[in-house]
Design a protein around this nucleic acid. Sequence first.
DNA 1: CGGTTAAATTGGTCGGACCAATTTGCGGTG
DNA 2: CACCGCAAATTGGTCCGACCAATTTAACCG
Lengths: 247, 247
Amino acid sequence: MPASATDRATRLLESRLLDGSWPAGSRLPAERLLAASLGISRGTLREATQRLVARGLLSARPGSGVYVTDRLHGGLASPWRQLLSEHPHLGTDMLEFRRVLEGAAAELAAQRATRQDLARLRALIDQLARARRAEDEAAETALDSALHAAIADAAHNSMFGYLQSNLLLMHREHIAQNHAGLRTGERSVAQALWQQHHDLWDAIRTRAPELARERMYAHIDFVTGQLAGRAPAGVPQRAGKRVRPSP
Amino acid sequence: MPASATDRATRLLESRLLDGSWPAGSRLPAERLLAASLGISRGTLREATQRLVARGLLSARPGSGVYVTDRLHGGLASPWRQLLSEHPHLGTDMLEFRRVLEGAAAELAAQRATRQDLARLRALIDQLARARRAEDEAAETALDSALHAAIADAAHNSMFGYLQSNLLLMHREHIAQNHAGLRTGERSVAQALWQQHHDLWDAIRTRAPELARERMYAHIDFVTGQLAGRAPAGVPQRAGKRVRPSP
DNA sequence: CGGTTAAATTGGTCGGACCAATTTGCGGTG
DNA sequence: CACCGCAAATTGGTCCGACCAATTTAACCG
């Protein structure tokens, strides 16, 4: 069965993007011209470009043109990643899920953490304390992720570890993208986060599973509340200045 | 900046896919009808569907219709499927994870189930009762899956639904592969499973979240115990470090 | 030369039309 | 009654022409 015209056009555009005929940032020929040169109708060409737009390879601007994105190196985009960025309410689902997932992980970690696990956690907590005193936001964020990942590892269940690393990553992306980002800058927030992490560590260290779970719940709930506080119900910003690609 | 009609249509289609209005495998309304009902032209609707086709969520067949792919419900499975067959001990991890996941799902379902959800659950329970009386093992297995999936749906959190369908499927494969298989043939086991499912349904129906969670825990624990009784490889994994899959 | 405005360009949307593949329904046959 | 075959209806695939709004470009004037 022969491929449809849209399929062929899509592949052709892809190859143009891959072989460098159309470098990142460049503008494609006008739809009318391109369609004519490919021997297909504008509507068909349009369907093909929309496919690539959906995959983040192209970006169309009314009145201006269709441009090549630099996201050719966009990695293996799980269907979820895109959904998450376009449907903010999924962020709520994810937070709710993380609450359950990480709560259970903390509980298991309190039961199963080995000496090495505890040593690693202690090290992370110490580093976190230092970063906190130095008010090194970047370090705090990185160590935060590392700590949560370490807890998931300490649960000694590969599924927890796997989901933890993936979801946390996606969720951070989602947060950053929605211009929220915890105000770790604010002293009180940063202090609260530190306290929560420390309490969590204490519960795991003293092998108090239920307490660990409860404290993880509290931690996630706190984060949820912080994010909810600055949820702009309407349309996400957008308006800002966009870099004009060099034609 | 208002979103384009294509953007809006794309989001709307995504929503329908996520909330289960259009289940995997189902056929979408004809383009002409759907476009009319959305108040957009066929061409625009077509661009939106092409975007989803590009992302593998939809699949169009000329002369037949546009169908919902099972990509959303199959994305995670593949990487794990192989891993699971190579490292049988991961089955334990999965059961442990399911305990947490489904326990939380049951709890949420007891809180959030709509009338339709409850009707669906009741129908499944009834069917399960009939299959039980008829001692139709195949039907019981299928309905078991459907029931667990329905509970996850009733939790109204897309992540739970997603993971649930994936894990349950994988787990059944895993069980079948290790020729263990719950002895639903044994009267006592089948009876116990039925009782557990019915109790679970009662807890959800009466909107008792914590009770629902506890009963789901008990159910999974029972299943775990049954499987442990006939562990194939004989070696209880427990010790040693688990492999942490790389994403 | 700079700034304002009008014209040309470009993507976005619409409606209608025709084709080919598929599905459906009907009628007849065994 | 079951089965088969054929025609009609349905459906996605493609094309055309038109108009709109945002953007860019060019002309024009002070």
